[in-house]
């Protein structure tokens, strides 16, 4: 006797929840990260979106343990290109609200631990280990190689796309 009512209530509730979540999914756009410097990222956006964490993880071990310091997949490389400046011309932290790292990570609800240790802005001008060297290296690579879909360098495919990374 009571059952049809309960049943109807459950169905209605489920539908309501479904429609609300659909609305949420429609309403929030996937953030479109932009680079401040350079025209093209080191890999196509889709590759970066899916695999940047693996690249960073791989690079981090290479850098710390082996001293390999190629800027291409380095966190520093990301920051050098993607850190924005405010009106006063100072860099804004990449993990500040609305900035490069935080927009996507907020969208994906993934907490990152990088910036408890790592700098959030590029190095100041004039330091020997500065971003100029890095961005130059990056631009050089960016222009010399094409990054159409499926044209990912072999090593990258091996290492990143086939689950070579950990964590």
């Amino acid at each position: 006797m009571l059952w049809p009512w309960v049943h109807r209530f459950i169905v209605t509730a489920c539908l309501a929840i479904a429609s609300v979540s659909a609305a949420v999914a429609d309403g929030v756009e996937i953030p479109q990260p932009v680079a401040v410097r350079g025209e093209q990222c080191v890999e196509p956006v889709e590759v970066m979106r899916r695999n940047h964490m693996k690249m960073l993880m791989h690079q981090r071990d290479d850098t710390v343990v082996k001293g390999i310091r190629t800027p291409r997949y380095s966190l520093k490389g990301c920051i050098d290109c993607h850190a924005e400046k405010n009106d006063a011309g100072d860099f804004i932290a990449v993990n500040a609200p609305g900035q490069f790292c935080s927009t996507c990570h907020q969208y994906a609800a993934v907490r990152i631990d990088c910036f408890s240790c790592h700098a959030t802005v590029p190095a100041g001008e004039g330091h020997g280990d500065n971003m100029e060297g890095n961005t130059q290296g990056m631009i050089g690579m960016d222009t010399s190689e094409s990054f159409a879909d499926g044209d990912i360098p072999h090593t990258v495919q091996n290492t990143f796309l086939q689950g070579g990374g950990s964590d």
Binding site: K76, I79, S116, C117, H118, A119, V121, P122, A123, D129, M131
Partner: peptide, 16 residues
Amino acid sequence: EELTDQKPWAPRGKGT
């Protein structure tokens, strides 16, 4: 304690 304004070439942070 928590650090800010680390140098990009010398990452360092709380608890390590």
